[in-house]
Write a protein that binds this DNA or RNA. Structure first.
Lengths: 173, 173, 173, 173
DNA sequence: CATGAATGAGGTTTCATTCAT
DNA sequence: CATGAATGAAACCTCATTCAT
């Protein structure tokens, strides 16, 4: 990965996240990256290739978070780690997450399978703890995760920490 | 509001919701509405005006849901009504909600003030019920609402009803 | 000529003179006139018909100025009246003259024949006064008229009166 | 300045001069230049940018004529050079001058400051020669220049040369 | 590897004009 | 007589992409 390639990726990530993929022209990306427009196509084939490259980076970085949960072992720890996920994302990754979340609403981009592994683990954890409807509980946690992430990415509530405390107590973790 | 105006609005809502605002050309809207492209501009001034007209409709229809919660009175009822909100939206309004949610991610479109009134009522309800940190509880509910709506609009989980039961139990409502 | 027709003509004259014929849309004319756009076409057939109606008014009003010169009789008086022409136009007619002058530069609009009668009288006057090259003198006066009118319509020099005195002295009139 | 840029400029100058700026579409310019329409915008940003580029060329070429007058020195020579100005313009520059003159009538395009330097020199010349009202004399010459140029550009009178002789005699130059 | 000129398709918008009411 | 909804063509401009250098 050359230096210019990275510049392009960074610029594209930033612009896609702030203004949306469709609203960001390759020429704006080139200008922001300080690079000729043609270079984008040499390295990434086309605009969609650029997006895919970015999403691959995102996948990579989200895998790290996920494996941490997977390796937790005990059910309570699984749940706790899970609830803490939105709090683990570094501010420097916000653009990436903004883009990921925004793209969910762009048709044909939603891929639920990514979460299926986690959902299974979570359900299992609840089952081990004797919850009545482990599947529903797992789904509920996912909804929280989604809602929390959205809140953090969009308007950053002041009482983030309190909310975590609050929900942890509910699950006793 | 002439008949053709409504056709335009309906077509635009549909296309914006399915493919995104930026990716939907006015010519596609015109074609879908069975109308000349120029007519869009006569009635809505420009593409953004068309979007605004749609969002006004959305506001109107969300006000109805909200006032229902506001009129609930008793704290428990407030919370219950609140949690049920995502379940109240008619399938016929999904396009509108998809668009509303998608637009949150389009820069400068997020308006948190819309929820402030509800947030206040909710916090008050939790306070009356003696919750330790009513503000965090309110925030948490909002996160659930957001996450649930997202799930419903994007992949419609099979166990919607169970999830509701599950969370209601947590709040004892 | 109904009241609305006059409103249209006045609005069109004003806008054509200020912004140019090509740059003025019929919708702007209608708005300025406080009239529906369709009415313009009912009364004037098309945009060019509107222009023609205006130019006819202009012709009419310029004929008045010209006949005054023609009736002057004595050569010196002819020349004096001629030189005074640009000073005779009422400020309320400036729009019309601006438009007339501007249109000269719009291809196929220049009609030199309009001036031929005047040119002949002028040449005759110079001949009677024994000028060496009456034709060139007549042409020269026309150039002055054109230049002076242009100056008055475009930037209104402060020493208009002095210039008239100055040139009158040259012709001893 | 690439070859195609020049082609665009030449085509635009020609069409703007013949048919007017507002009446000339960028697509006509592109066709006349044998170039894709997009290229116009890549090189000149927008239609107005194209016009500005042309006017800059015009400025450049008019500066040359003007400096010649400025370097004349003796008052009589200044005046003579001045009067001869409209006769100096090469036929190949007519389009440019037609456009320049036509644009004066397009609102907000008139820039009298360009002539101020010349006006000053001219006034000075008349002063040195003891004319009674040098300012009015200067203005008068400008009017002649404007009228003569207009005549040359619009209908090319047959007795151009005679007119020059005629006016030179009046100023004894 | 890198540039930037060049393109053609398509985007939003404006316009002159028609027509039902 | 008068309106204003409706249209289709054309206006200006942007875009993703290609290619010669």
């Amino acid at each position: 990965m050359t230096e210019k390639q990275e510049k392009i990726l960074k610029a594209a990530l930033n612009l896609f996240a702030q203004n949306g993929y469709a609203s960001t022209s390759t020429s704006k990306v080139a200008k922001e990256a300080g690079v000729s427009e043609g270079l984008i196509f040499r390295h990434f084939e086309n605009k969609e290739g650029l997006l895919k490259a970015i999403m691959n980076m995102a996948m990579e970085s989200s895998k790290q978070l996920i494996t941490e949960v997977m390796l937790a072992g005990e059910p309570k720890k699984v749940i706790r780690k899970m609830l803490e996920l939105p709090y683990q994302v570094d501010r420097s990754h916000y653009d990436m997450w903004r883009l990921t979340y925004a793209l969910k609403w762009q048709m044909n981009m939603y891929d639920s399978s990514a979460n299926d592994a986690l959902r299974l683990i979570l359900k299992d954890a609840f089952q081990q703890l004797g919850y009545e409807d482990p599947e529903a509980e797992a789904e509920l946690v996912f909804m929280f995760l989604d809602g929390a992430s959205t809140a953090f990415l969009l308007h950053e509530p002041k009482n983030k920490a309190d909310v975590l405390k609050c929900i942890k107590k509910k699950y006793n973790v």
